[in-house]
Design a protein around this nucleic acid. Structure first.
Length: 579
RNA sequence: GGGCGCGUGGCCUAGCUGGAUAUGGCACUUGCCUCCUAAGCAAGCAGUCAAGGGUUCGAAUCCCUUCGCGCCCGCCA
């Protein structure tokens, strides 16, 4: 693996080698080398000696001291010390700084990039029913999905994102029936097809609840859909496509763009679903009752009231999960790693899908990132009931509030520029606020939190970037990597050193987040980096410094700027040059 | 009834393959713009890491029980 882009790797490897050798010398050659990051100011890498203590039957601190005394020195290490049962190793700052500057300031490759990897990653996200506007209960999906894609791409993975369009199910059929048979008087809240058609969807649902005849008609439409009745298929495709386009416009507003689409109807039309059904029928887990077929999954660790997994209705038509099974087989044929971003309500479904996959002999299973729902203080959102805050409303409100903030401080800017900054800052605040929280935690949506413009927020990070840009504009020229590396000795203050160390940690952070398919750690890294930069900015003059010191500081600002921009990019946020 | 997840200062949150004084932010109080943009910086206030038990030299982290919240257990998607 190519670690040229990671300034810390040489130090980490040297420290690991030295520690392993030292462990052998003290008679603990077989101990695991679990290294961790010590607290601020206590070095750059640490070996806890507590588990070794069991092995050697000695006090941890005695072992730490012994290890330190037998450790060899190296190019990358400054010193090792024993503190409270830990061996803390400090990196040689100059070496680290040289490597960081070389990696961060070289043109042609974004800082943080990992070496290209061979495997194809197919990342499915969002995939919501095209029955109405994207609301914030769903908005977590595109934000998490798009951010994972960006992080993984930077880390070197070959990622394609895909949206699975559920255009053959009952929900869409209900909407299509409504569009065809109902007349909805109310004007849509917005002149967009997702907002327009959701009224028909809601009205159709209401009708179905009170009128069995309407319900029967929807069922008939559903049957025609699955049996390829041209007129029905075409009308259904038209409505869902129009709603989908409305949703995609909303997603584009928060900088989410999807590479490809798979229409569920295609899997029905091209026979993939029938082939899957045939394979399931041949399984010894397959049973039939009243014409419907199901798999008995009790032996697959699935528990509850019912362990049946139904895959064909009595009329022979397929169900959502059956079609999803066909979709997964298709995904496997096009990728080496398949990742899904799904709401936590899909957990059982995914477990069943994995069981079904193994039953039909697939060696592969998708990897899934689950997230909990965003709810309102008054409870859960529902498209059908209309208790939603739409993404479009949220984006408008964010831009409006950000505009007020811009106007407060930048009266010098032309209107158009103020609007542009407000857009960047406002939509950024939204994305950041979702991305910063661990996927499995529930979120209760509150306007004042979603549109927070200070502290742990996108604007905080963007502001640090804008400040760095401001310095770079005023500095006559950027500093070359070689020139920067030559004056690292001038970086002597704690503020400078702490900032540089954070910058140096960026590539490893990106790599780890990509591997763990984790988003929120990049958000907190960005926050830490911005905070450290702001302290540096406050206490360390750059433009007023002279000679090598000035060049070293300009190089540090430029490295910070590039790192901030890249981290913002991972989060799908724009990096404004002024705010 | 069963399964999965979450529960950290008034509010939001990090840490959770056990380990060094539990991380940041919001709110609140108080300082800092003749100085590269104050969307900033600094200081203060604030914690029985849901509760109880267990394992361990050591538990926010692992195990058990209980409580609270969310999600799921459809011939819906």
């Amino acid at each position: 693996m190519d670690d040229a882009g990671d300034p810390l790797s040489a130090f980490r490897e040297e420290a690991a080698r030295a520690l392993r050798a030292a462990l052998a010398k003290v008679g603990a050659a077989e101990a695991d080398l679990l290294l961790e990051r010590p607290p601020e100011g206590m070095g750059d890498i640490a070996l806890p000696c507590f588990s070794i203590s069991k092995l050697l039957r000695k006090a941890p601190d005695a072992i730490a001291k012994e290890i330190v005394s037998v450790m060899t020195s190296g190019e990358e290490m400054e010193r090792a010390e024993a503190v409270g049962g830990y061996v803390n190793i400090h990196a040689r700052f100059d070496r680290l700084a040289e490597r960081a500057f070389t990696a961060a300031l070289s043109d042609g490759m974004e800082y943080g990039s990992g070496a290209p990897r061979g495997e194809r990653v197919l990342l499915e996200h969002t995939s919501v029913n095209p029955t109405g506007p994207v609301h914030i209960g769903r908005a977590r999906n595109p934000i998490i999905g798009d951010t994972i894609a960006r992080i993984m791409r930077l880390a070197g993975y070959n990622v394609t994102t895909e949206f699975y369009v559920n255009d053959v199910g009952r929900q869409v059929a209900t909407m299509t029936w409504g569009v065809k048979n109902l007349r909805v008087a109310e004007e849509p809240e917005r002149d967009k097809d997702d907002h327009r058609f959701v009224s028909y969807y809601r009205e159709a649902n209401r009708k179905c609840e009170e009128d069995p005849e309407a319900q029967a008609q929807v069922n008939e439409l559903l049957f025609k859909l699955e049996h390829g009745d041209p007129e029905t298929v075409s009308l259904n495709r038209q409505t869902s496509e129009r709603v989908l386009n409305g949703m995609l416009a909303s997603l584009a507003d928060i900088n989410v763009h999807i590479d490809g689409f798979m229409w569920e109807s295609k899997l029905v039309e091209d026979g993939s679903v029938d082939r899957v059904i045939d394979r399931l029928k041949g399984s010894r887990f397959c049973h039939e009752s009243d014409g419907a077929r199901h798999l008995e999954l009790e032996s697959f660790g699935i528990t509850g009231r019912d362990t049946k997994w139904v895959f064909t209705r009595a009329d022979g038509t397929s169900l959502y999960t059956t079609r999803d099974l066909a979709y997964h087989l298709d995904k496997f044929s096009r990728s080496d790693v398949a990742i899904n971003v799904l709401g936590e309500d899909q957990k059982l479904g995914m477990q069943q899908l994995a069981a079904a996959l193994s039953i039909i002999g697939s060696e592969r299973a998708p990897e899934t990132v689950f997230y909990s729902f965003v709810s309102l203080p008054e409870g859960r959102m529902s498209t059908r009931k209309g208790t939603v805050v739409t993404l479009d409303d949220l984006v408008d409100e964010a831009k409006e509030r950000a505009y007020e903030e811009v106007r407060k401080r930048r009266k010098d800017l032309p209107e158009e520029r103020m609007r542009e900054i407000a857009r960047i800052v406002g939509t950024g605040a939204l994305r950041y606020n979702i991305a910063r929280i661990q996927a499995e935690k529930q979120i209760v949506f509150r306007w004042e939190e979603a549109l927070n413009f200070e502290g742990s927020s996108a604007p905080f990070v963007q502001y640090a970037h804008a400040r760095a840009c401001s310095i770079m504009r005023k500095a006559s020229a950027a500093v070359s990597p070689d020139r920067a590396a030559a004056c690292v000795g001038k970086l002597t203050t704690d503020h400078e050193r702490a900032l540089l160390k954070l910058i140096a940690a960026y590539p490893a952070t990106v790599r780890e987040c990509a591997e763990a398919r984790r988003v929120h750690t990049v958000a907190s890294f960005a926050q830490d980096l911005a905070s450290q930069f702001n302290q540096f900015y406050r206490y360390v003059p750059v433009l007023k410094a002279e000679g090598d010191t000035r060049d070293a500081r300009i190089a540090l600002v430029e490295a910070a700027r590039r790192t901030l921009r890249s981290a913002l990019g991972c989060l799908g946020l724009e990096a404004p040059e002024e705010m």
